[in-house]
Every structure is written in structure tokens, then in C-alpha cells.
């Protein structure tokens, strides 16, 4: 739980970048880089692939929210926004997927500590849910492919459903492939498949 996180920070004020670099290690984390602008932050994240991003909103050339969107697109990363502003416009824009906390300046070490802990936890839950969903989706896709291949075999070779399935299992064992890979090959080999 309390393992060190690799954190990327961004603020246009050098003093606050210094502050983050000073205080975050005290909380047991590593600051992988401090960016002064949104673009720098995006670049930093592409390069260092941090576990967490803490960013100001108002920055030259790209603000924190746009940067967060760019970073998340590249790689799911939890993001904490820190700003002196909490206009409804900002709040609405910040409601995107990977922004997990929005702190109003002035923030204290205690605020950061709490926010980081909660965000890490939430992100883990979030990620595991995401993975679960992804796995389920893949399973469903595989199932569909296998069913299609099975249907094809039953039709072409006039096999019963059980015989078709058994044939596919045997092929997989023989060729040391997953059942779905076999099914895909069967579908690929079929001339009548409209995708060919």
C-alpha cells in the first residue's frame, strides 16, 4: 500500500515546483520531474511514465486539464489538480476520467498526503475494474469467434456440434495453440468468409 510512487509535478511557479520536490520525498515518494508548462508535462510523462501526476491548472501554452487529457490518452495515469480557481467551467472540464482529485490552493502537506493516499487507492480499484472489464470483453469476443468457427465446421463438414468442438480442441492440442487461435485460423481459411 504505502509503496513509493513515481510522481510528475507541474506548476508555472518555480517556488512551488521546488516545494513539491521538497515535500513529496518526505511523504515517501519520488518526484520524477517538474514541468513548468502543460506541454512540458505531457512530454515528461511520455518519457518517465509516472504513477501519479500533480498539476496546476493555469499554465502557459497548455493548461493542466488539457495536459491531463493528453496524458491519459497515452497511458492511464491518476491525476491530482491543484488550483487557486474553482470556477464551474474548470470543475466541469475536470470531470474527466483520470482526474481523481481537485485541490484548492493553498494546499498543505497534510492535504497532499491525504489526497495522494486516496487517489492511489481509487486508481487501483479503478484499474482493477478496468482490467476486469477488459478480460470479460476479451472472453466474450473469443467465445464469439469459437462459436462462429464451430458453426462453420458443422456446416462444411456436416459434423454435430460436439464433434466439431472436439475436432477444434484436437487441432489446438496438436498445434499447441489456444482454442481461439484455432478458431480464428478456421475462419481465416474459409473462402466464403466475406472478410476475405
Amino acid at each position: 500500500m504505502n509503496t513509493a510512487l513515481r510522481i510528475a509535478v507541474a506548476d508555472d511557479e518555480p517556488f512551488l515546483r521546488t516545494y513539491f520536490q521538497d515535500v513529496l520525498p518526505d511523504l515517501g515518494h519520488e518526484v520524477v520531474g517538474a514541468a513548468a508548462t502543460g506541454k512540458e508535462l505531457v512530454e515528461l510523462c511520455q518519457r518517465t511514465k509516472p504513477d501519479l501526476v500533480i498539476s496546476d491548472i493555469r499554465m502557459p501554452d497548455m493548461d493542466g486539464i488539457d495536459a491531463a487529457a493528453a496524458i491519459s490518452e497515452d497511458r492511464p495515469t491518476p491525476i491530482i489538480l491543484v488550483s487557486a480557481f474553482h470556477d464551474p467551467e474548470y470543475i466541469a472540464r475536470a470531470e474527466q476520467r483520470y482526474i481523481l482529485a481537485y485541490l484548492i490552493k493553498p494546499v498543505e502537506r497534510a492535504h497532499l498526503e491525504t489526497a495522494i493516499a486516496i487517489v492511489r487507492r481509487r486508481f487501483q480499484e479503478f484499474e482493477s475494474l478496468r482490467q476486469e472489464t477488459k478480460d470479460l470483453k476479451q472472453a466474450l469476443e473469443d467465445r464469439k469467434t469459437i462459436e462462429k468457427a464451430k458453426g462453420l465446421m458443422m456446416r462444411k463438414m456436416r459434423l454435430s456440434e460436439a464433434d466439431a468442438f472436439r475436432t477444434m480442441q484436437k487441432l489446438a492440442r496438436d498445434q499447441n495453440l489456444k482454442l481461439v487461435q484455432v478458431a480464428q485460423r478456421i475462419l481465416d481459411a474459409d473462402d466464403s468468409n466475406p472478410r476475405r
Partner: peptide
């Protein structure tokens, strides 16, 4: 208030760093 928040943030950062 917005401006003060930035100023307070700097002040807060300074205080914490000084405290260390």
C-alpha cells in the same frame, strides 16, 4: 481571493519548507 490563494500557497510552501 484567487490572487490571495496563490500568495498563500507560496507562503504555505515557504512555511513548510522552513519548518523542516
Amino acid at each position: 481571493a484567487h490572487e490571495s490563494r496563490n500568495a498563500l500557497q507560496r507562503s504555505q510552501a515557504g512555511l513548510e519548507m522552513l519548518a523542516k
